[in-house]
Design a protein around this nucleic acid. Structure first.
Lengths: 348, 348
DNA sequence: GAATTGTGAGCGCTCACAATT
DNA sequence: GAATTGTGAGCGCTCACAATT
């Protein structure tokens, strides 16, 4: 039924290993034989079986990744599409494909990561290291599976390779921008409390406040699960702070920022006149919202490219030392930020 | 080095085929043996090699898809993320994984599709059937590879399975909506001329005009490559039609619609007062744009779910007849459409 | 006879080694 | 001796068949 090297060998009057040599391309073959083999292969419509090849070579030429497909925000944010674009970009150029394994619940992710890599279907794996305390790195290291972390791990170790968007710096700059405009009461809407990126952002937020001699107020920090409605919900208590209402808010993604803007509008406030808003990640939404959203651009595409590059280098036994890359974000100032009005928010 | 069934067999004092039976789960095994094997496997940290399994069973439990990673609009539009979510959703629930093969140029897609399926790394493949004239279906059918088309093929055949968003109906409804508001000069900004979906949309556009007794004017059709700037560029000549300027425009995606709105704004026109705009696909951008964009929602997530379902059914030898599904879109009316002002556009 | 387990060929390649020119 | 080709074991499983209880 299926055409194999044996059939080709027979037709070309050579041994099957010769056919193998022609197609694997790693041996010297006389041009005459080569042509005869190729002709026979073409005649029979032969195509090498990558599975069989994998079994003998122990290389699948496939990179793996686990995605939690139920999280809609995973697909609304530019994060996932851009990451996939970056991975496929680098991987495919180097002859690797991408194997995705979906999990219903993000909590199943570590188990799915191990299942995927242990199945030998992938040579290496890109692991999201976003949640605090959830950690597969120990097992991956112990079993010597090649992997790269997408996200800085909470506890770094010398052997770990990771790439991360510099959320600390991004938040620092965003809040500095607001402080520079004259804001003193600045709220922070984070995504989830249990993510490493949240800790980074909080640190950046506090550093910016410290630099300006502004107090840190726990009451100005809320969590919006990266969702629009979550951003609106987080915003409402801030808006209700009579006399001490923040005059600006920084959100950890654009969806929440837009939600915050909507909540402000519902409360009869105008952005940026009555309240400045900064988003994160610079999704398409930011450029089109009303007003157009100031946002810090996260280079997810580049991030993923670096991850793929690091992983492939690892697979090819190249790098003596692990990769630890922190990519800078860039604040894109648009229309949603302005100096506070005198007497607004703070009891005047 | 790597632990195989043989090692487990040795430790459990059984034959390797018994270990195989325990892990493949398709044979009756006494509970005692089962436990002994599982204990041995656990002790050795054994995990079955999916590649070896694939080689003997001729099934990889993997669905394939080719993505052109250089097309940025492929990743800005909700199409790709939603499709991937739908595929991974259904596939992973049924024990399948997703293998992505990236191509730099969309023209390489057919070749990449064949390479992927012929490599035996995937059991079946989801093929984008968007372009007119580019067709791998003949080869796929001839070589008996299981596949499902994402998009209606230009020439349908009895054996073909495809799923498609009903662009004809979506366009028909959108244009009817505009006509219902009183518009008589309605422009159409399509994506690319050489896509089947463009033909469908054109047909829907013309049907709506016909129904209302309105003439079809080729000068009111333009192409914006699905990009924002393309939408703006396509819009400008319309805006310059003094005396016969269209009072409404329908765009084949939201990015182009937003571009058209920007072009209108630059020309000093207000949407929807001076010009109504309808987008397509209802991306996040639509809900946040200024004014919020009326758009026809394309159920891409559902589309991909259907595709995966059809493909898996095919792989399991279940369906006697091919699947041909046309999914309805739903017009989401927001703020970018309104009745035309008297005397606007048309020479009054 | 039914349930359970062993036997060993086979899936389609690659690669070390030997043989040939 | 260098270039080219053949030989056959091996990659880690599964499955038809035989053997055992």
């Amino acid at each position: 039924m299926k055409v194999t090297i044996k059939h080709v060998a027979e037709l070309a009057h050579v041994h099957s290993s010769t056919v193998s040599r022609v197609f694997s391309g790693k041996a010297t073959i006389s041009e005459a034989t080569r042509q005869r083999v190729l002709a026979a292969a073409a005649e029979l419509n032969f195509h090498p079986n990558a599975i069989a090849r994998s079994l003998t070579t122990h290389r699948a030429h496939v990179l793996g990744m686990v995605i939690p497909y139920t999280q809609e925000e995973f697909f609304l944010d530019p994060f996932f599409p851009q990451v996939l674009r970056g991975l496929s970009d680098v991987a495919c150029r180097q002859g690797f494909r991408l194997l995705l394994s979906g999990v219903e619940d993000p909590t199943e992710e570590p188990e799915a990561v191990l299942r995927l890599i242990r199945s030998r279907q992938v040579d290496g794996i890109v692991v999201q290291a976003s949640r605090v305390g959830v950690d597969t790195t120990d097992v991956l290291l112990a079993e010597r599976h090649p992997f790269v972390l997408l996200g800085r791990p909470l506890q770094d170790a010398a052997e770990l390779s990771w790439v991360e968007v510099d959320a600390h710096q991004a938040t620092l700059e965003a809040v500095r921008h607001l402080i520079g405009l004259g804001h003193r009461r600045i709220a922070f809407i984070a995504g989830y409390p249990n993510m490493v990126v949240t800790l980074d952002r909080l640190a950046g937020y506090r550093q910016a406040l410290d630099e300006a001699g502004l107090p840190y107020d726990e009451g100005l920090v809320a969590y919006g699960q990266f969702r629009q409605e979550g951003g609106a919900e987080a915003m409402r208590p801030f808006l209700a702070m009579n006399g001490s209402r923040p005059t600006a808010v920084f959100a950890a993604n654009d969806l929440m920022a837009v939600g915050a803007m909507q909540a402000a509008a519902e409360a009869g406030l105008e952005v940026p006149r009555d309240c400045s808003v900064v988003g994160s990640n610079d999704s398409p939404v930011a450029a089109f919202s009303c007003p157009r959203l100031t946002s810090s651009r996260a280079p997810y595409h580049e991030l993923a490219r670096e991850a793929a590059q690091a992983l492939i280098a690892q697979l090819q036994g190249m790098p003596p030392d692990p990769v630890k890359r922190l990519l800078p974000c860039e604040l894109v100032v648009r229309e949603s930020t302005a100096p506070p009005r005198a007497g607004v928010g703070l009891a005047g």
